[in-house]
């Protein structure tokens, strides 16, 4: 019998990095040391463990890497378990799911503005590194990233790396003042408005719904159009294969028609996101 799409592969966690107090990054490879499957930036995979159920997690690493990584916040049963395991632990993985960001089509040649809040950086991480790997294919790259506090900034080391690249502009912010932090303080939407990015940017945004809502408002005030802004809604997926019936927004299934949406597409859908 053919392998069912719901049936996972077994992967091995080969590296665990603590990013923030409640976020860890897990590198997962097949038992043969190779990637379990090929993915595109913005796609997700379903991780699971026996007895802990499944959780849809966006793939953090760029497809250009020879490994697959997941940055995961400790939020539930499975993610809690993942946070307790050690290197060498096997996990079940199925995927990839969803449409990717249009990195090789619509986004190609564009100036890119990435806006992320908290763990929302995870799905963008894949795209950013993809663009870095193919740097000449894209214009300016600006990143705005915010979190509750400096300790909650995911990928801090890599953020520094990005910031050190002359062709990338990294802007960090935290919600409240904190000792030892000399960067910007304030919420992401406000910060974006302050930075006043040029309208040449195509925006890719991911974070808590409330952050997206207000950032989008701000962008519109700056003159950005819905057609310039992309986001991902990978959170809603469950089965990943368009059958279990819960990730829809109107007649669109996030797992098959998304998770990446351009805001004008979302605008046509019922306001249930």
């Amino acid at each position: 019998m053919d392998k069912d799409a719901l049936m996972p592969y077994v992967g091995v966690i080969t590296e665990i990095t603590r990013e923030t107090p409640d976020v860890k990054t897990f590198r997962v490879l097949g038992k043969d040391g190779k990637k379990l499957f090929i993915h595109e930036p913005g796609q997700c995979a379903m991780l699971s463990a026996p007895g802990y159920g499944e959780a849809m997690i966006s793939i953090t690493s760029s497809p250009t890497e020879d490994y697959m990584e997941f940055s995961i916040k400790n939020a539930g049963k499975l993610t809690g378990w993942l946070h307790s395991v050690e290197v060498g632990q096997q996990v079940a993985v199925r995927g990839p799911y969803g449409k990717s960001f249009p990195v090789d089509t619509d986004l190609k040649g564009k100036d890119l503005l990435f806006i992320a809040g908290g763990i929302g950086l995870a799905p963008l991480h894949s795209v950013i590194n993809y663009c870095r790997a193919k740097r000449s294919d894209y214009g300016k790259i600006k990143i705005v990233y915010g979190s509750r506090s400096a300790n909650d900034l995911v990928d801090y080391k890599e953020l520094q790396e990005w910031a050190n690249e002359p062709s990338m502009d990294v802007n960090l912010t935290i919600d409240r003042p904190q000792e030892g932090w000399d960067g910007n303080v304030g919420f992401v939407p406000t910060y974006v408005k302050e930075l006043n990015p040029e309208l040449s940017y195509t925006v890719i945004i991911c974070g808590p719904p409330i952050m997206i809502k207000f950032t989008l408002q701000g962008l519109k005030e700056l003159g950005f159009k819905d057609t310039q802004v992309y986001t991902t809604m990978e959170m809603r997926m469950k089965c990943g294969v368009g059958k279990c019936g819960r990730c829809n927004i109107g007649d669109k299934y996030v797992c098959k028609d998304g998770p990446v949406f351009r805001f004008d597409e979302l605008g046509e859908l019922p306001n249930e996101y």
Binding site: V10, A49, P50, G51, E86, G88, Q89, Q90, V91, A92
Partner: peptide
């Protein structure tokens, strides 16, 4: 079915 034996997972 799934089995977990220490660090190993079997599908």
């Amino acid at each position: 079915d799934l089995k977990m034996d220490h660090k190993n997972v079997e599908v």
